[in-house]
Structures are given as C-alpha cells and as structure tokens.
Simulated assay, not measured.
Amino acid sequence: MEKHREGGAAMKFVIITGLSGAGKSQAMKSMEDLGFYCVDNLPPSLIPKFAELCFHAKGDIEKIALVIDIRGGKFFDDLFESLDTIEKMGYAYEILFLEASDEVLIKRFKETRRNHPLSPKGRIIEGIEAERQKLSQLKSRAKHIIDTSNLTSSQLKEEIRKIYVEGLKSENLTISILSFGFKKGIPLDADLVFDVRFLPNPHYIDTLRDFTGDDPEVRKYVMKWPESIVFVEKLKDLLFFLIPYYIKEGKSQLVIAIGCTGGKHRSVTVANILYESLLEKGYRVTINHRDSVKVVRE
C-alpha cells in the first residue's frame, strides 16, 4: 500500500541497485538532476529509520533515491529484512536495477583499473558471476530494469528521465539498434543479426560515397529500390511479432544488429528506419552506428 502524507501526495522512494560497473553512480547523478534527494551506500539496516524520517518531513522532501549495493559487505544481507520492514510500516518504494553484459562490465573495470568488490584479488569475471547470483532475488523484485551495455551516459540519463518524469510504462526491455560493417566483425553482444549487403550500395555512387545513412541523399537512394522497401517492411513485421515474446520471456536487453560491408550507408539507413518505427510503437529503444564515419573534404 502506498502511504501518503496527510493532505499531500505520495512520496517517490526509489532504491537504485544492480551490478558493479553498470552505472549506478551515473544513475544517481541523473536522479539528482531530476530533483531527487540522493544518498549513496546507506547501510540497509538504516533504511526503515531513514524512510520514517523522510515520510514525516511534512512536504520538505518529495523524492528520495538510495543507492544500495554489495559495497555494503555484510551489511548488504540486511536489505531484504529492511525492505520487508518498510512495507509493514506502509511505506511504498520501488527498485531500479541496473545491469550490463559480462563483456561490457569487464571492459569497464579494466578501463578504470578497478578490482571487482567480490573478487578483489581474483578474476573480474568471477566477481561478476558471484554478484549476479547474489543479486538475482533483488532483480526479481525490481520495478524497472535498465541494461546499460549499449547506453552512453546521456542515453542512460534520458532513460531515467522517461521513467521518472514521463512515467514510462513500457516493459523492462531496452532495445538497442546497432549498425555495423562486416569488415570489422559482427558485434559480440548481438541477439539478432540482419545482413543488408544485398541492397544496392551507395558506395559506388561518386556523389554519395563520402556521406552516410544519416544523410537524406543516401537514405533516399537506399530506399528507392523495391527490394529495399519490401525487406524493411518484412523486417519490421518480424520484429513487431518477436518483441512481445522477448518481453514475456523476461529479457531486459535486445540488441538488433544491422550489417553491410562498411557499416556506413545501407546498415545505417535501415537501422535508422527501424529505430524510428520502434520508437513510434512506444518501445524503449536506443541506436548506435558503430562504424559510420562521415568523410569531410577540405
């Protein structure tokens, strides 16, 4: 039951948690920008008392976000008991859970030269696997799950804004559209890969070679062919059919990779069209062009 202040609206009480390296600190900064009063690494045993203080603040504090994770060590084990306690007290809360793929987490730890909290002297992957297991029950209680594997800091901030400002009600699935060039290899984290090298190639048109699929001239050329139009429509129909089943399965991240030879023209065009269509359907979707570089002539 959501508890309201006397004569006032319900307080928004959010617990930010998830995997180490998944972006909890960035999420907290985004919440602060949205007017949340944020506390990092509060011992879970103190949550009930903290919640009581906030809910009796007589309107001074309307939005709270707590970052709770395995940095708390043995104190983290008190979390579920504390959550049960505040529920019995009648205080409503919701969990925002952040995660990312093993490959991305390993890369982030190596870039920052940090050790994993659960494996300070061992392999990073061992710490990640242990943390996934430790947080599995907490993840199952999350209202919102964001996979940050393919999100930039600004994209994560936008996702959080959509949830806590616009009241996003879509399922916990983030769809990442990724264009790429087969010359540089297929993305390792791709769930679905579609090859568009059969479409007419703007690379062989002198006036289009230096442009990308983000330019209207290239998009117009790629989509003027009957096979392009039919393919894109069939691809959209396939994705509209598949996505609800991925949501039903409980998948939190779906990476759709569109590839052409260089990753600059055809794949970018098709990726952009898919992104626009999925956005119109109300899905949580991001886009990234891995190999698209526009040539600038002096």
Rank of each mutant, 00 (worst) to 15 (best):
M28W: 03
M28S: 15
S30E: 12
E32N: 14
E32D: 13
D33R: 15
D33K: 15
L34A: 06
G35W: 06
G35K: 11
Y37R: 09
C38V: 08
D40K: 09
N41C: 03
L42H: 06
L42S: 11
P43I: 11
P44G: 08
S45E: 15
I47L: 08
P48T: 12
P48F: 10
F50L: 11
A51P: 12
L53D: 15
L53C: 11
C54N: 15
F55W: 08
F55D: 14
F55C: 13
K58Y: 04
D60G: 14
D60N: 15
D60M: 13
I61E: 07
K63G: 10
A65W: 05
I68M: 10
R71F: 02
R71P: 03
G72E: 14
F75R: 14
F76T: 08
F76N: 11
D77G: 02
D77C: 00
D78S: 10
D78G: 03
L79A: 03
F80T: 11
L83D: 09
L83G: 07
I86W: 04
E87V: 05
K88W: 02
K88Y: 06
G90E: 06
Y91R: 07
A92Y: 11
A92D: 13
A92S: 13
E94R: 08
I95D: 04
L98S: 09
E99I: 00
A100N: 10
S101F: 03
S101E: 15
D102P: 01
E103A: 14
V104W: 01
V104N: 13
L105T: 09
I106F: 01
K107D: 12
K110M: 07
E111F: 02
H116D: 04
P117Y: 10
S119L: 05
I124Y: 11
E126N: 13
G127T: 12
G127W: 02
I128S: 06
A130I: 07
R132N: 08
R132P: 05
R132W: 06
R132V: 02
Q133W: 00
K134E: 04
K134I: 01
Q137R: 14
Q137Y: 02
Q137I: 01
L138N: 05
K139F: 02
R141M: 09
H144K: 10
H144G: 00
S149V: 00
L151Q: 05
S153G: 02
L156H: 07
